[in-house]
Write a protein that binds this DNA or RNA. Sequence first.
DNA 1: GTCAATTACGTTCTCCGTAAGGATG
DNA 2: CATCCTTACGGAGAACGTAATTGAC
Lengths: 299, 299
Amino acid sequence: MKLSGRLIDAFLALEETRHFGLAAQRCHVSPSALSQSISRLEAQLGMRLFDRDTRNVFLTPEGEMFLLGANRIAAEIRSTLEEVSDRLQKKAGRVGMAAPPSMASNWLPERMALFKSRFPSIELKLYDVVSDQCLDLIRQGQADIAINAQPGNAFEVDSKILFNEPMFLICHSSHALACRSWVSLRELKKQPYIHTIRSGSVWQHVQTFLGPAGVVDTGLEVSQLSTLGGLVAQGFGLSIVPQFALALCMRNGVAAVPIKDKKAVRPIYLIKRKNHSLSAAAQSFYDQLMLEAIDSKNL
Amino acid sequence: MKLSGRLIDAFLALEETRHFGLAAQRCHVSPSALSQSISRLEAQLGMRLFDRDTRNVFLTPEGEMFLLGANRIAAEIRSTLEEVSDRLQKKAGRVGMAAPPSMASNWLPERMALFKSRFPSIELKLYDVVSDQCLDLIRQGQADIAINAQPGNAFEVDSKILFNEPMFLICHSSHALACRSWVSLRELKKQPYIHTIRSGSVWQHVQTFLGPAGVVDTGLEVSQLSTLGGLVAQGFGLSIVPQFALALCMRNGVAAVPIKDKKAVRPIYLIKRKNHSLSAAAQSFYDQLMLEAIDSKNL
DNA sequence: GTCAATTACGTTCTCCGTAAGGATG
DNA sequence: CATCCTTACGGAGAACGTAATTGAC
């Protein structure tokens, strides 16, 4: 037993107009087609829905009962189709983003604001979690897209480089390098270095180019960038942090200097779940970010 | 944009099984057909609902959203189809009956009880109103069927004779005719007669055969049969009432005697609205009553 | 290499429109 | 007799199945 939306529409049109000609017009079919549709509907339900002759059309008691159900069905179809339409027109939707605190506090909000101005009705959700958790949220499907310095497992997630984030030296403002407009890695030789934790994304990238610099290990290893700022301000040593993490450790007594070295960058990835489509809303945000990345490369 | 029940079913089947082969089996179609159905659905909605390759099938974010709507639609279709089915199997429904007090109190309840035993779930509604109102309720569609001594306007209602109700003489129990097993109309000559109101159905039928009897008018004209009983019991005179009205005026001091005369009957009609189908439930009760009428004629 | 989804293609069936038929007022 | 619902019939398009193709593991 099959109930198509067409038949429901035909029924409701005839119920409202009580006239085959008008109802057919409303359904954009011929009176004959509408008559056949009503007949089919009645045959499938096994009951007569309309009492009709050439002059009058009105519902049978069964028709009145069916009217209630038909209205409910039509209402659900309408509302579902509207939801679909809203999604397509990006009037509705939700984008779940995951990003480490550095990107979540400095870089991402500007892009979110732009997106929000383009699609005001789309809900934006931001998970500011540490690097590894960003990837977990993507794998679990809780976040649609992630911004991360680690690309993650290529079998599980899909990562594209957005840009290379330059690294900065931070040191006490009274330090000899503090007033320089840039420093090279070699200039850090024998300087007391404060490490970030080995499990953090910063440590992993800094390792790739810090070796030749020949810094001195202070034995300090912090997990929070704000702690790093505090230690540097008190003269415990210096450290290297990515550009967008600067704001988290800057304070009175701390100076930041760009590091001039091709290796002193870390790639920032735009990440989504592999083999999973993004929602229309998430895809839009994804496209916006990728477009910006391409544009900036061309400049 | 058309959403057929078939497509909803295909979507839900695939969502539950997450396997084209199994879902196709559940829908009684080939895997190919199901694949095409899903593709059509996606094309019509303008969004991809499933991420799939040859090994995995799962919902996209849009698919999850659509799932909610699809479930609502499917639920409404199911419940509506169940209501239809219940009606067809006479597990549900309602019969509105109109009958004058005499039929509503004596004859009809037995038939209602039989019907109720056959279809316990059908709701029976009885309007015990005077003859004219019975016809009004039918015309207005408030009652499905009526039992009435008047057939009503043949252009508005459809009346069929159920049976002929015999008329009875009622007189004081000390009256000479009281102990007879039957009386003829001629024996009422010069007897003091108490009339029922001229607008009532009883009066109208009694008039058709009372003329030749030559009764004496007492000047009394009552509207309630119980009043008639009271007057007869007090010896004010005698009267003629239909069989099923007897119970309403019988009491101590009142005797009833059948009248032996072909004309001393009144037809009882089974009435429904003209050009209007009865509900399945009402039709069943209608059929039951008509069948009984035909059976009793054949005996 | 195997299993599963998809595509290609021919068939069947549904659905619609035109036109004739029939009922009602 | 005029209106309007219905039936008859033919054609267009949808939907399905079989079989070949593609893709993933």
